[in-house]
Simulated assay, not measured.
Amino acid sequence: MSMWWSLQLRREAASVPLARRLLLGAMETAGVDPEISYDLSLALTEACANAVEHGTGEHCTDEPGAGGTGRTGEHSDDAYRVTAYLDGDRCRIEVADTGPGFGRRGKSGKPGPLDRAAVDAEDGRGLFLIESLADHVRFRDHADCGGGAVVSFDKTLKWRGDRRFGDAGALLKAS
């Protein structure tokens, strides 16, 4: 059994815990080991915080009711998207924003998000934290709609006791 969900969120700090709580709730219901859930929720928090801080302008969407009309290439201002997939023994998460992307510098001339942070820097470690918490990580720029960053990461799931996603008894016990 598999499941997925996708959220289009406003680029506001309050959106970050919402995405994290939804992920944690889905993983608890599915019977995922709490340590794995914590790692993925921390990685998601970092990716969402980066989208809130660095995302700008317009966001591509093709979903009606989410700022779009169902046509590819439609834009919604000040939003980013979080998509999570739990499929078998893997969880894959993708966070897409509309900032300057990776490898490009913004109008301010500040370093891009993949530039190494100084040892005493207050910020700039989020993407490296994601890399340490996930099994596989990919940073890329949007291919369409004029830019933005996409952070995708996945991790092999471990299960809590006898509970496992796809086991109807486990899902019934959780509700």
Rank of each mutant, 00 (worst) to 15 (best):
L7F: 11
L7T: 03
Q8V: 14
Q8C: 10
Q8T: 15
Q8W: 05
Q8N: 11
L9I: 10
R11D: 05
E12Q: 15
A13W: 13
A14I: 11
A14Y: 09
V16M: 06
V16R: 03
V16N: 04
V16Q: 05
P17H: 11
P17C: 09
P17M: 10
A19R: 05
A19M: 11
R21I: 00
L22A: 13
G25P: 01
G25N: 12
A26F: 01
A26K: 01
E28K: 08
T29R: 07
A30G: 07
D33K: 07
P34S: 12
P34G: 12
I36G: 00
I36V: 15
Y38V: 01
Y38M: 04
Y38N: 04
Y38C: 03
Y38E: 09
D39S: 13
D39F: 14
D39P: 04
L40T: 09
L40H: 02
A43D: 04
L44T: 07
T45M: 11
T45C: 09
E46Q: 08
E46L: 04
C48W: 02
C48Y: 04
A49F: 10
A49Q: 14
N50H: 09
A51V: 02
A51H: 01
A51L: 03
A51N: 02
V52S: 03
V52R: 01
V52H: 00
E53N: 13
E53M: 13
G55S: 10
E58D: 14
E58Y: 15
